[in-house]
Structure formats: C-alpha cells, structure tokens
Design a protein around this nucleic acid. Structure first.
Length: 269
DNA sequence: GTCCATGTTCTTTA
DNA sequence: CTAAAGAACATGGA
C-alpha cells in the first residue's frame, strides 16, 4: 500500500490527532516488529508526549518531547490509525498505544513486512534525496552513476527515496520515457522532464489521497482515489489514454512494469 | 492447488 | 567493483 503519497497522507492525517498527546502504558506490542532487536518500547514510549509527526521517504517519523524519535514503515500492508479505544481490534494488530484523549494509536500489518524502529542519531543516512524537493541536477548526478534500467534506478531508495512500483511506472509514462532505458544514458532534457514528472505525479497522488488498491487507508481510515487516475499501472492489455495503443507489461527487477510501447519508445530517436 | 501483490534485504551468479 | 536474477520474509485475494 504505501509509497510516498500514501505515507504523506498518513502523516498529514495523523499529525493533528497526535500533536500534544501523551502516550500511556502500551496495551499490546508484538516486539519482533521492533528494531533494533531488544529495543524496549514499553520503557521508551509511556509518559512521553508527541511534538512532531513527519515523513522521510516511506517512513513515518514520530518525535517525542525529550527528543526521542522512532519511525514506522508500513511495508506492503501496514496501516497506522488513531481510533476510539473501545473500537474492536483488527487481526494482525502489532502495536496499541493509548493516548490521553481516550483514543489509541494502532499499527496493523497482516504481512508483517513493516517495522517499527527506534531512531538513534545518524539514521536515514542510507536514503537518497526527497523527490518532491530535490534539484533536477542532483537527480541527474544520481542517475549518471548507474547503468541500470531507469525503472530499476527509480526504485532504489538510496538513489531517490520514496518512489515505489506504482509511481515509478506512472512518472515514466508522464515523462514518456521507456522503463528499460539506461539511467546514465538519459539526456539532460529527459532528466529534467522526468524530475518534473515525478514531482507532478507524486503531488497529484497526494492531493487525491493516494492509491487504494486493497488495504491502504490514511490515519482516519479514509481510502484514496488516485488509482482511478493511473495511466499505466495495472492497466496491461488496456488502451493507452493518450494514443490508444495497448499497454504492455514486462517484469523488471522482479516487479511488474507497465508502459505504453508507443508513447514510451525505447530508442531515443 | 496456482499466481500475484503498493517493500526491503540477502544470496547467488555473472 | 556493478548489477541482474532469484529467493526470502508472511498473508490473503482472485
């Protein structure tokens, strides 16, 4: 469920519900979801209050009043919600943190690809620039260093952080760049076009509340609607909205990749 | 039973 | 060193 737009949406809806709230004794914690191993959230969270909720890449970062910080990564199926305490618990709930307003912060993740990580200083170092605010020249410098396919490069969180399978395909379509093009072989014009396409696509997706394919909801439980605006993702076999050609699907880096063979030509000419 | 899935990381292979 | 391919993690839906 979660790429940058979905995570941003969770942060935006979570922030007003958490700011200034203090956390009580944890009611439930599956501690193998917590890293580094051995981190004792039962000791770290209670009686502290939340002063900030932000996003870095696909991570939801919560800052406490004494400077302690942790993040939650939603993996594929994670949900982070604030609900009334008496609300029935969903299966696969791995964290329940009671708040001082009668509500609870809950983390639900059936596939358990997500994680809760206590942050020590210097974390996030392994992540590339934020795509919404990066300069095109920085992006270009990153791309120039790799001969991988551009689609594969976009999914590399060290190269640029926050893009996943949906938005990589959608941004490449918007920029009319074939997913198999060698990253370092893109022209300066193409790099700028792609940089802009990424920002525009992500911004539109955030405005639409993200893409809900199956599980994704924001912190209030609301689904997104950007899936209705997908041009190529999950549209293999259907007609391109721009040229009526048939959208193709290939497998790249183990991920399915959808593109329009006519709008996104493989040779630069 | 099969295949596929919005993510990340590790291993093997070239 | 780069990077591609495959598997792994765990669960559920079609």
């Amino acid at each position: 469920m979660p790429e940058l737009p979905e995570v941003q949406r969770v942060v935006d809806t979570l922030r007003p519900m958490l700011l200034g709230r203090s956390i009580g004794e944890l009611l439930h914690l599956r501690d193998d979801m917590v890293s580094p191993g051995g981190t004792n959230l039962h000791a770290l969270l209670p009686s502290r209050f939340v002063i900030d909720v932000t996003r870095r890449a696909k991570r939801i970062v919560i800052t406490l009043h004494d400077g302690g910080r942790f993040f939650i990564h939603l993996g594929m199926t994670g949900q982070l919600k604030v609900v009334e305490a008496e609300r029935e618990r969903q299966p696969h709930t791995h964290l329940i943190a009671p708040l001082d307003d009668g509500r609870e912060l809950r983390f639900v993740d059936p596939r358990r690809f997500g994680e809760i990580r206590w942050l020590s200083d210097g974390d996030h170092r392994d992540l590339g620039p934020e795509p919404l605010t990066m300069r095109a020249t920085v992006f270009g410098r990153q791309l120039a260093r790799t001969r991988r396919a551009i689609k594969t490069a976009l999914l590399d969180q060290k190269l640029v952080a926050g893009i996943g399978n949906i938005y990589a395909d959608e941004a490449l379509f918007a920029a009319r760049i074939h997913p198999l093009r060698v990253a370092s072989a893109l022209s300066a014009v193409e790099v700028r076009t792609l940089s802009r396409a990424i920002k525009r696509t992500l911004s539109r997706a955030i405005r639409a509340g993200g893409s809900t394919l199956r599980d994704y909801v924001d912190a209030t439980g609301a689904a997104g609607s950007f899936q209705k605006l997908h041009r190529v993702y999950d549209r293999a076999g259907q007609k391109c909205i721009r040229c009526r050609s048939t959208i193709e699907r290939i497998v790249l880096g183990g991920r399915s990749t959808c593109f329009c063979p006519s709008c996104q030509r493989e040779s630069a000419g």
